[in-house]
Computed example of a mutant assay.
Amino acid sequence: MAAMATESRHWSRFETPSSMQRALGLWVDAVGYQRPKPPEDQLDERTWSYYCVLYISRGRGWFSSTPTGRIEFGAGTLLWLFPGISHGYGPLEGPWNEQWTCFSGPLADQYCQLGYFDPGRPAVSVGDDDEIAGIFRKLEDLFRRGGPLAVSLATSLMHRLFALNHARLSGLADFEAGGDPLVNEAIRIVEAEAHKGLRPEELAARLHASYPTLRRRFKERTGFAVKEYMLNVQLRVARQLLAFTRKKVAQVSEEAGFRDAFYFSRLFKERTGTSPREFRELQA
């Protein structure tokens, strides 16, 4: 563990995760900031063995990597850096303010493979987002205080940051404020009616769209297939019924929109890791 504070505009701290933290599959290695980062402070092409994400809250900058070539971005950007990919970046014209955190682990690789952050789209515009800014402030506070729980608590914040970034990449962040009207309306209908036996083809017909069009646009904006999203909503309804009522599994299956109780039980076990009865017992 080491801490550096060369001057007030620059601070960073590094932590070494414990074997238990490594066993969980994701850990934060370092946290820091530079504000302002002067325009002459350019990072030449280099390759790291870990992930980093920078939050650029002020100024404009450039980024370059093999997958993207050179791109430019403005304030309110999350800039993701990937292990094994040569990259360079720096401010344009004037200084910028950056906060950053580095993280590692096989779970980070899985998040990347699932598209929560993408080497082909490393600069993600998030604007003046209070929640994202708050995550970086909390990361700094945790690493400044240190202690045996610093890495674990910091790592817990990363899951939320990954989800927020994925929402921006997929368009879900615009669900209530713009986005794709077809997908927005599809989500509203599915959330309200998936447990009532709604079928994907019926959904498309109600939206006056062909099913291939709905399927493509829904996948592009949410990362889910239409049917998969419907199943997730149905399983959410089922979990609520199992946790808060004493209804029999067959009745729960029916009220969650599953026509076959045996199929429901098998799917529930596949998706949650427990049978419906085991899930209910765990809630007792």
Rank of each mutant, 00 (worst) to 15 (best):
Q251V: 10
G146R: 02
G69Q: 06
F279I: 01
P36C: 02
R160W: 04
Y263Q: 11
A2G: 11
W27F: 09
W80G: 05
F117G: 04
G197N: 11
F262G: 08
G105Q: 00
S64N: 11
P122M: 09
V226W: 02
L207D: 07
F262L: 14
G94F: 09
N184V: 13
L92Q: 14
L169Y: 07
L114H: 13
T6R: 12
L241G: 00
G178P: 03
C102N: 11
G90Y: 02
E15N: 11
D128K: 13
V53T: 00
R22K: 15
Y89S: 10
R221W: 11
W96H: 07
F143A: 03
A250N: 11
V233C: 12
F264R: 08
L79N: 00
K248W: 03
G59A: 06
P106Q: 00
F218V: 13
T68H: 06
I71C: 06
P119S: 03
K196I: 05
L207V: 06
N184P: 04
Y50E: 08
R168N: 10
D41L: 12
G147T: 13
V151W: 00
A167D: 02
Y229C: 03
Q21D: 02
T245H: 01
L157I: 07
S18M: 07
F82H: 04
R60K: 14
Y51M: 05
C102H: 04
L114D: 14
Q34N: 10
G25Q: 01
V190D: 03
L231T: 15
Y116N: 05
F14C: 07
K269F: 07
K138F: 04
P212T: 02
E191C: 07
L142C: 01
E201A: 12
E270F: 10
K247P: 03
L231I: 15
L231N: 14
K248L: 09
R58N: 07
Q283F: 11
V151M: 06
V151P: 06
D109L: 08
A23S: 14
F268M: 09
P212W: 06
F218E: 11
A177I: 06
I71R: 00
Y33C: 03
T272M: 04
Y211K: 08
R216M: 08
S253I: 05
R239K: 15
R121M: 11
G197L: 09
Q21R: 02
D260A: 08
R9T: 13
A123S: 13
G84A: 04
